[in-house]
Nucleic acid binder design. Structure first.
Lengths: 365, 365
DNA sequence: CCGCTTTACTAAATCGGTTTATTGAATCAA
DNA sequence: TTGATTCAATAAACCGATTTAGTAAAGCGG
């Protein structure tokens, strides 16, 4: 395949051109000290102006390492990259990749199958994103025994997992709305990432957090709709909210993107945010501080998560065993998209938060 | 490297377990019709419960294809992913990757060297981003003769390039401010991507566009500062603007991210946007519609750019020659961050634009 | 029953490197 | 002078697949 009928220059070509063995050429690149001055220079020079480059796959095969880590993504690239969450995560991972001279392979499902994609991928280890414990891809990772770190998932006997305190963050978010006086709430849930799978572990934990606060306050059953983490999905979710007397006064979204899309749709429909509708997001993406009004949301340390995952994977690739760390802290960031519902006196707003992990902050400079 | 002293299961293991040759096992996966029913099933079954997976590097070596395309990025992942531009581009590329069962390798400089990274990368082709024509990495791509498509660069004799009408868009942006009555302008330029390199082709073309309009209007020499495409860089750029009588009333930024950061800094400093300072961005990222006020900016079709680049690369990988397409159209999107400068009557705002490619639009729904 | 084509399978070459074991020459201590 | 070391370089094995060129047995027409 390719119009390059000019066959690639191999190590053998360089060797014969320099009148030495393949070994010598290989040494010139990998163990220069094992060669004499003269030969070293001659080989290197010849290699350069012949335009020789070691074939990466051949190298990977004989060295048993490819210098690449795979990022296993259970969704289509076009949808998952619509959420800045992934950019942030990659920023964190990227720092460590650069530090360790690794490149990063994006591995989305091929032909609908993650397992197929895993086979293709020539990598030294995987970081997997949001995989359900019963995903077949996970089983495959265990079988082939490749170093793996799970992010936003559940630790398996073989692989460590990195998580944030999803439940605590969600609980703080719900408690915040309850403290403000809201009783009629809606939840915008994350969809399952893979067809006919249940909720992702992350979604489940956030659900649990919301419920914990709601149950404690004896709030009425929240209306729940599902929306992908995109603005358009969030806007669609707004349409799905009950109208009339069961109209929610507050919305708990499991992603900032859905929250922002929903806020836009609400505003287009003539609602005032937060007066007519309070909205709390999840993630605290950079853009959450820039919407109008700025979004109240649960911050999770996404970049740090990426860093940590990469660091742990690199340890595992070196053969060291590593244990799952404690979940990273989440924290509620109160901005302008939440207020007491219409009809509730504003003084309530000044109530001290009952949970200790809230933080009020404005737009970060 | 690795704690997997349990050596990987190879094709030979499966072969001997099934009592057949390696060839038969290979056929079972790749040419099933060349095997008898009975053997086929036995081999496949054994392979499965032995947990056999063909080694990707070995496969890549003998098939001379890796099923991967590389995205060559001339900057650190942590900086380039701070700009949603890249996410958009990847969304476009991703669509075609999925269509053709390809995975995508991110290839940033390793140890400061893109060339080194190119060597490592086991890919069937490259899409390169914003490379200067004199970048050594480009020369290397030509030497090893790997299919390549250049994005935001200049077409080389060997490789086609995909570009947008950078100059036209910039000219429209500048003309817009001039039409509003601004005469004292500042330009926020994109920095060179690689150390001690000149401006990127993209930056140069946008400069040319700004200048064309400014010269035509005999506007005074614009003050120029450089800022990376991040909000913090944009905020820093604001500090670099002249104060006092040479204070610009309008800013032309070469990226939305810098524009948004600058806008925030200006607002924190007590300026009203657009009344005290008009700002025009470049890119029209989704978030540009969500800032307050919404950002006037030059839209370029980023996702389409990614799609097109991937489509062309795939053609090249199939051996077909492809020519550089015409630059894609850019269009000015007027939102709320621009208005006549203080002291100029507002009627000027109603002036018809002198260039034909402007568009007025609100926040997109 | 004989030559001819299929069918089902295999031995060996190949892809392009790295790595181990070995060799021949030069250097050195005794 | 001799035996032990070091140095520079190489031959050959190896990594784990695919692919080419065959081969033995079965099927078939005449």
């Amino acid at each position: 395949m390719g119009l390059d009928w000019v066959s690639r220059i191999t190590i053998a070509d360089v060797a014969s051109a320099a009148g030495v063995s393949k070994t010598a050429v290989s040494f010139a690149f990998n163990n220069p000290e094992k060669l004499g001055q003269a030969t070293l220079e001659r080989v290197l020079g010849l290699a350069h102006n012949l335009g020789y480059t070691p074939h990466p796959a051949a190298r990977a095969l004989s060295q048993r390492r490819s210098g690449t880590i795979g990022l296993l993504i259970p969704q289509r690239l076009s949808v998952v990259f619509a959420n800045p969450f992934l950019s942030e995560l990659i920023q964190g991972m990227g720092e460590l990749c650069e530090e360790h001279d690794l490149t990063m392979l994006l591995v989305p499902p091929l032909d609908g199958s993650l397992e197929g994609a895993i086979r293709q991928a020539s990598v030294d280890g995987f970081i997997s994103l949001g995989l359900s414990p019963d995903d077949r891809a996970l089983a495959m990772l265990e079988r082939i025994g490749i170093p793996t770190v799970l992010v936003d998932s559940e630790a398996s006997p073989m692989h460590p997992a990195i998580n944030v305190d999803d439940e605590g963050g969600a609980e703080a978010a719900a408690q915040h709305l309850l403290d403000l006086g809201h009783r009629e709430l809606a939840i915008i849930a994350l969809p399952p990432t893979r067809a006919h799978a249940g909720h992702t572990p992350t979604a489940a934990r956030r659900f649990a957090g919301y419920r914990a606060a709601l149950d404690r306050a004896h709030a009425s059953e929240p209306h729940t709709v599902t929306a992908g983490a995109t603005m358009t999905a969030g806007a669609r979710a707004f349409e799905g909210l009950p109208k009339g007397k069961r109209r929610p006064t507050g919305v708990l979204a499991m992603s900032d993107m859905a929250a922002i899309g929903l806020m836009a749709a609400a505003q287009s429909a003539g609602l005032k945010v937060p007066d007519d509708l309070s909205i709390v997001g999840y993630d605290d993406l950079p853009m959450a501080a820039w919407t109008n009004p700025a979004l109240t949301t649960v911050r999770q340390p996404i970049v740090e998560k990426g860093r940590l995952a990469a660091r742990m994977l690199i340890q595992r690739m070196k053969g060291r065993a590593v244990a799952s760390p404690l979940p990273l802290a989440t924290i509620l960031v109160v901005r302008g998209s939440t207020s007491p519902p219409a009809g509730v006196p504003h003084e309530l707003k000044a109530n001290p938060p009952s949970s200790g992990e809230k933080e009020v902050t404005g737009r970060s400079s």
